[in-house]
Simulated scan of single mutants.
Amino acid sequence: MSRAFVTGLKGTVLSAEERAFLTEAAPWGLILFRRNVESPDQLKRLTGDFRDAVSWQAPVLIDQEGGRVQRMTAPLWRKYPSGRRLAGAAGLAGDDRLIADVAHLIGDDLAAVGIDVDCAPCLDIATPDMTPAIGDRSYGERPDLVAAAGRAFADGLMAAGLLPVIKHVPGHGRAKVDSHHELPVVDADLESLASADFMPFAALADLPAAMTAHLVYTAIDPVHPATQSRVVIEEVVRGRIGFDGLLFSDDLSMNALKGTLAERARATLAAGCDIALHCSGDMIEMAAVAAEAPELVGKAAARAERALKARGGSPHDDPDGVLARLDAALAAYDAVAV
């Protein structure tokens, strides 16, 4: 039986040590980064070797948003625009299908190499002083437009057979510092958060998977970051927002979280995250996280099963037409933006 964590790997091939770890520790899934990506054939071997090691068709995740966050990129894969640029171009062109069609092509790229979960779309609302770590990954400042763009992107991924993971619930847009390096603290009142930050997540609460934010929201829990706050997860994510899908933590290796990796994993799972996400590929850290991850059972297992059933699709039937529309829309948008 799988255990309630997702792990990373160090490089482009599965080492003997990693294979033994995967077989013994039985993570629910694998997440890939640019350090793991060399070529299409190499990725097919890596994802296949991972699944051989865990002995089932386990999920393989990646962050493939477009823009700065695209692990599979040029020259072997097309470089897609950021969320902000894609949404802006689609809006200017009046092309209601463009975002979904582009996401479908991204999904096709991933499915072709054995990846079936995309940690996207990013539903964080843009604010004037937000950290550049979010920046143009956000679709914009208006909650309704962010929700619409996120819905279209998720629909496109699912049409390609990919499981989308909405992030970073309940909203990362007010963070002024990068949670990869330090813990952001958001002092906005609950009403302000509910009327803006939470809204895209509530609009997409029916989707099968989401990822938390490593942020402290002082109006909700002044001590614990959302990832490790039972109050935030129970009262806001599961309560106000109404999300009942599979809940991943953001990466436990990020410096916003304190303590050892074992302590971070323990606190994250105790707070109500279904899956602890650990990305570094460091074997000592991987073992520490695995030791804290219980077997995936109960509500978490049911959510995981529902999420995996959401997979299943087919390649887009007109990729050249989508790319032509995208290039034309981006050219018009960039001309106006300049």
Rank of each mutant, 00 (worst) to 15 (best):
D95P: 03
L207T: 00
G107A: 02
A209M: 04
Y139D: 02
F201R: 14
G83N: 10
P200E: 12
Y217W: 13
L110M: 15
V185M: 07
D109G: 09
A103T: 05
A120C: 13
A203L: 04
S179A: 08
A175V: 08
G140F: 06
L204E: 02
P184E: 12
P75T: 12
A203R: 14
A209D: 02
C122L: 15
S82L: 03
V146R: 10
D96C: 07
Y80L: 12
V169Y: 09
R142H: 03
A194I: 05
V169I: 15
E141H: 05
H168Y: 02
P81N: 05
M130E: 13
R151S: 14
A219Q: 07
A90R: 06
R84C: 00
R151C: 07
E191N: 15
T127W: 12
G140V: 04
F198M: 06
G88M: 05
D129A: 15
E141D: 03
R84S: 01
I220N: 14
A152E: 14
V169P: 05
A196S: 14
I99H: 11
V185K: 06
V216W: 05
T218W: 09
D178P: 02
D189R: 05
V185W: 06
L204I: 03
L105G: 12
G135I: 00
V177F: 08
L105T: 09
D108K: 03
G94Q: 04
I115Y: 09
D101S: 11
P75K: 15
A90K: 07
M199S: 08
P81V: 03
I115R: 15
G91S: 08
D116A: 11
A120R: 01
H104G: 04
T218E: 15
G140P: 06
K79V: 11
A202D: 00
P121K: 14
V177N: 08
P121E: 14
G171N: 12
K176N: 00
A160L: 06
R84Y: 05
R84G: 00
A149W: 05
L204S: 04
P81L: 01
D206C: 01
L215A: 08
A126E: 15
F201P: 01
K167N: 03
A87V: 00
D95H: 10
D197P: 12
G150D: 12
R142S: 09
G91M: 02
C119Y: 06
V186H: 07
G88V: 01
I166W: 01
A210L: 07
P164G: 02
P208W: 07
V177D: 04
L110K: 11
A202E: 10
G91K: 08
D197E: 14
D206P: 00
L163N: 01
Y217S: 13
A93G: 08
H214E: 07
G135Q: 04
K79W: 13
E141A: 10
A160W: 07
D109K: 05
A103N: 13
D116Q: 10
L92Q: 15
L162N: 11
D95S: 04
D118M: 00
V169G: 04
I166C: 09
Y139M: 08
G173N: 10
R174Y: 11
A160V: 08
P200C: 12
L162G: 04
R174F: 10
R78P: 06
V185C: 09
D95E: 11
R97G: 13
D108F: 02
D109P: 15
P200W: 12
R85V: 05
T131F: 04
A159C: 06
M158T: 11
A154I: 03
I125Q: 05
V117H: 08
P164M: 04
A203D: 07
L86S: 07
G161P: 14
